[in-house]
Write a protein that binds this DNA or RNA. Structure first.
Length: 862
RNA sequence: GCCCGGAUGGCGGAACUGGUAGACGCAAGGGACUUAAAAUCCCUCGGUCGCAAGACUGUACGAGUUCGAUUCUCGUUCCGGGUACCA
């Protein structure tokens, strides 16, 4: 064997062997326990970056580990291939989104293969293929037919100068990112999925997802945002119509002094009509509706409103409440109308101050009183009811129910539950996505495409950026359709495509049967493999992707396609790989590899020489160009070192600010392992590794044997459950260090040393599969290392007859000593008090207390 | 703004369930081998004071609980993620 570790030849040798032998191909084996390990599939943006390498390496180690543990492991990979970047690239580089996407897939596939990941490539999926999205279209139709999908009008960001719809990401400071024009809001008819029908179910199951991080389920619960409250009906002065509001504070109804409506609330125009305020209100609404309506933006705007000129009547006090249109009221939440109680809600208080509105205290904190005229901030806590007529003196919590019951009796209110979660809007006025399989007919309305016509294939020749609407609308032959219901030949096809989150909401099920042509999924295969036992991906998907996938699984369940409702049993949210962003005045975002750093740390652009601005540290993303191409590392050190380093750098759930210093150490470590074997191959020949009782060993052999078994235990514990590969690798490094330290010890048995070497290779195999396989081959010459069972540790090798006791005086470490393992509390205390060093600190002092934790420590309090 | 996280040596990180802070590695410094270099192997390495033994101090900041807090509670600062059309 070579003296020197040569990564390249070893890695290509084993990758070829695995591919030739189909080592990672799996089929259902009913008598074998399955393990479905899935990493979130990537968007094919061009190149694999370090975030991907980290994610996929983590997954690969788990997959290989579980395989060694005897599971039938499904470990697939594919491409989340529809999306906006393909269209942006098409516009910028004059390519076709499909050509760009497929080229990227080829590049990225070969990069992934080079990392030595254990995927069953026979199951590869690209969501942009008709074979995939036809089933999505099919499901869409089922959902329309079951009333799970519907159409309504809703707003999109619109750039008048580019004649195009903009994603939120494409809006910068309320302006179009391409041309700088101010962005408008445009109302369009769009498709929605009724995810709100499942709000309660999704919420309740959050607490049953024991294998998910609490942070994620908490975020999902907050996102769903269930609140219990009351719906209250208000009479409007001089109008027939009434206004309904949802409030979580019916106890404060006596203090409601004005009303706020969402700007798009249908009553706004109606109420202001013919009043002096009509024009001002119209101007206000028009202005607000040009603004970004995302919750992020809406929450950060200064609260403002416009008086509609109309009043409603507080049903309990008869107070004439002015009705405002307000920018913070959201049409999507509750009823789009908010009853405002300035004394007990800070936002309402600020609003009342700004517009000189009445403040009325109705809840006083226990044992105190509040004055409506001098109040400086809202009191939002619980308390005792005041100025609330018959409810005075009642505890405010109890008053919620009492007032609601009273309203219900009078027929002007009822207990209601409201969710923050909104229905999922899926229409996109874009080209590179799944065509929505619907036909619009003047007489029949929206009619599903007949199943026999599926898939509706995405045409290749649509023009981007020219239409003023959906690119597919530019194609006459595509748009023209015959109504499947009445035969009207002047019907029009829906020209929108679906949100790309739809594809990623069911791909995990399709991996079980990627070539199935008789339906969306093969029930039997899905029943064997699903649900996913371990899902791994970036924490940035904690809400949207994961919630949509949970929802879609419920839809598929209710349509009889699958027999489970939760798709992912365990979830590991991997921290992001982050890096500073670099911007050059002429080239905007620039790649780290396109910049140079001089001695003083100043950074300049290699393309133009201009100084580069070093910006914030954010997650690696193609659009911000703060990405590191793993090829540099792969070329220099190989896949095993790259994998080892990604895992060693930090535990998986933590963010990792990229810095490739340190990779050298991982490369050196592999070299150390290599030489450990290379120098001993001859001595091991014919020797069987020792796995017997520890009691038969003594001296260095016993010591090393203990270390071997402790390492197996440590690595297994770290990998199992926690996935803390960084500490697992540290433990193996320690074992290797011990082996070096015992080099040449006469009392060291060769069979124990061989056990040590084999253990290192077995434990390291999932992390560095190529080099360990190569070394295994030189050692034994038979079988694949990855097919060996994971090593078991021997309990008898771990028992120690002495334990270290540390002694503190007043909590400060002063001394330590060994005691026999079974030493009693009294014995330990006596030894501690008799300790020479301890004596110096306690001499002449009163001992107030002695705390003894057997096997651990003594703390003497003086 | 709101929701969810995070902060430990020059750097990445470790510390079980409240019990020795800094495992393992990088960088740095020193030594061995070599004609020399590379590679390799060995040693030192939070800060201050001290010749040393050692003492004091130290886990973003400020309080608190406790015999004992990196760990628990409250408050603050800064950083990251999400915020419904980036994926």
């Amino acid at each position: 064997m070579e003296d020197k570790y040569l990564a390249d030849s070893i890695e290509s040798k084993w990758q070829k062997k695995w591919a030739d032998e189909g080592s990672f191909r799996v089929v259902e084996v009913p008598e074998k326990e399955k393990y479905y390990l899935l990493e979130m599939f990537p968007y094919p943006s061009g190149n694999i970056h370090m975030g991907h390498v980290r994610n996929y390496t983590i997954g690969d180690v788990v997959a290989r580990y579980k395989k060694m543990r005897g599971f039938n492991v499904l470990h697939p990979m594919g491409w989340d291939a529809f999306g906006m970047p393909a269209e942006n690239a098409a516009i910028d580089n004059n390519t076709h989104p499909a050509a760009w996407t497929y080229a990227n897939i080829d590049t990225m596939r070969s990069q992934l293969k080079r990392i030595g990941l254990s995927y069953d490539w026979d199951r590869e999926i690209a969501t942009c293929t008709p074979e995939y999205y036809r089933w999505e279209q099919w499901l869409f139709i089922q959902m329309v037919e079951k009333g799970m999908a519907y159409r309504k009008e809703s707003y999109v960001n619109w750039c008048e100068s580019c004649h195009t719809v903009l994603a939120n990401e494409q809006v910068e400071d309320d302006c179009c990112w391409r041309c700088g024009e101010t962005v408008q809001q445009k109302k369009l008819w769009q498709w929605f999925f009724r995810i709100t029908d499942y709000a309660d179910d999704l919420l309740v199951h959050c607490d049953k997802l024991g294998g998910w991080p609490d942070s994620v389920t908490t975020m999902q619960k907050n996102w769903i945002g269930k609140s219990v409250g009351s719906e209250v009906v208000f009479e409007v002065d001089g109008h027939e119509e009434t206004l309904s509001v949802f409030t979580t504070r019916p106890d404060t109804l006596f203090g409601a002094t004005f009303m706020c409506l969402a700007p798009e609330h249908p009553m706004v125009a109606q109420l202001s009509k013919g009043t002096d305020e009509e024009e001002a209100v119209a101007r206000f609404v028009a202005r607000i509706l040009t603004q970004d309506r995302s919750s992020k933006a809406v929450e950060s705007y200064e609260k403002e409103g416009a008086f509609t000129g109309a009043y409603c009547i507080n049903p309990l006090t008869g107070f004439k409440m002015p009705i405002y249109a307000a920018n913070f009221a959201l049409m999507e939440y509750g009823t789009g109308a908010v009853m405002s109680v300035p004394a007990h809600d800070q936002r309402d208080f600020d609003f009342a101050q700004k517009y000189g509105l009445t403040v009325q205290v109705v809840v006083a904190p226990e044992g105190a009183s509040l004055d409506s005229d001098t109040l400086t901030e809202a009191y939002t806590g619980p308390g005792v009811m005041v100025h609330s007529d018959r409810f005075d003196g009642m505890e405010s919590g109890a008053a919620k129910d009492a007032i609601t019951d009273y309203l219900e009796e009078k027929g002007i209110g009822k207990k209601t539950i409201s969710f923050r979660l909104r229905d999922w809007g899926v229409s996109r006025q874009r080209y590179w996505g799944t065509p929505i399989p619907m036909i619009h007919c003047d007489t029949c309305g929206a009619v599903p495409v007949p199943e026999s016509d599926l898939p509706i294939v995405l045409p290749e020749d649509a023009q981007l950026l020219e239409s003023g609407g959906s690119p597919l609308g530019t194609l006459d032959y595509f748009t023209k359709a015959t109504c499947p219901k009445c035969g009207n030949t002047h019907a029009r096809r829906d020209t929108d495509t679906m949100d790309t989150f739809v594809e990623s909401s069911w791909y995990f099920a399709r991996y079980c049967c990627p070539d199935y042509t008789d339906g969306m999924v093969d029930k039997e295969k899905v029943a064997y493999w699903m649900p996913v036992d371990q899902y791994i991906g970036g924490v940035e998907h904690a809400i949207l992707h994961l919630l949509y996938s949970r929802y879609f699984t419920r839809v598929m369940h209710d349509l009889g396609l699958v027999d489970f409702v939760e798709p992912f049993t365990r979830l590991l949210t991997q921290g992001m790989v982050t890096k500073e962003t670099l911007t050059c005045p002429t080239h905007k975002w620039v790649l780290p590899s396109d910049t140079e750093r001089d001695g003083d740390g100043a950074v300049s652009c290699k393309l133009c020489g201009e100084p580069v601005d070093v910006g914030r540290v954010i997650k690696m993303s193609k659009s911000k160009k703060n990405v590191i191409d793993p090829n540099t590392l792969l070329n220099r050190y190989g896949a095993d070192t790259t994998r080892l380093f990604c895992l060693f750098a930090a535990p998986p759930e933590k963010d990792l600010e990229w810095n490739d210093e340190g990779v050298e150490g991982c490369f050196k470590f592999i070299g150390r392992v290599w030489r450990l074997v290379a120098g001993r191959v001859a001595s091991f020949s014919g020797v069987e590794a020792y796995t017997g009782p520890a009691g038969e060993l003594s001296g260095k052999s016993r010591e090393l044997y203990t270390k071997i078994n402790a390492t197996i235990k440590k690595v297994t514990d770290d990998v199992e459950g926690k996935f803390h590969f960084n500490t697992a690798i540290s433990a193996v490094m320690e074992l290797v260090n011990s082996m070096y330290a015992m080099n040449g010890e006469a009392s060291l048995r060769v069979d124990v040393m061989k056990r040590a070497v084999e253990t290192v290779l077995l434990l390291l195999n999932p992390v560095a599969p190529h080099v360990t396989e190569e070394l295994w081959e030189t050692l034994s010459g038979t079988g694949l290392l990855m097919d060996q069972p994971w090593p078991e540790f021997r309990e008898d090798a771990l028992v120690s007859d002495e334990v270290l006791i540390v002694v503190q005086v007043n909590g400060k470490l002063r001394s330590k000593f060994n005691v026999p393992a079974g030493a009693s509390k009294d014995e330990i205390q006596a030894l501690a008090l008799a300790d020479e060093v301890v004596g110096k600190f306690i001499e002449g002092k009163d001992i107030r207390k002695v705390i003894v934790i057997p096997g651990k420590l003594v703390n003497i309090v003086i």
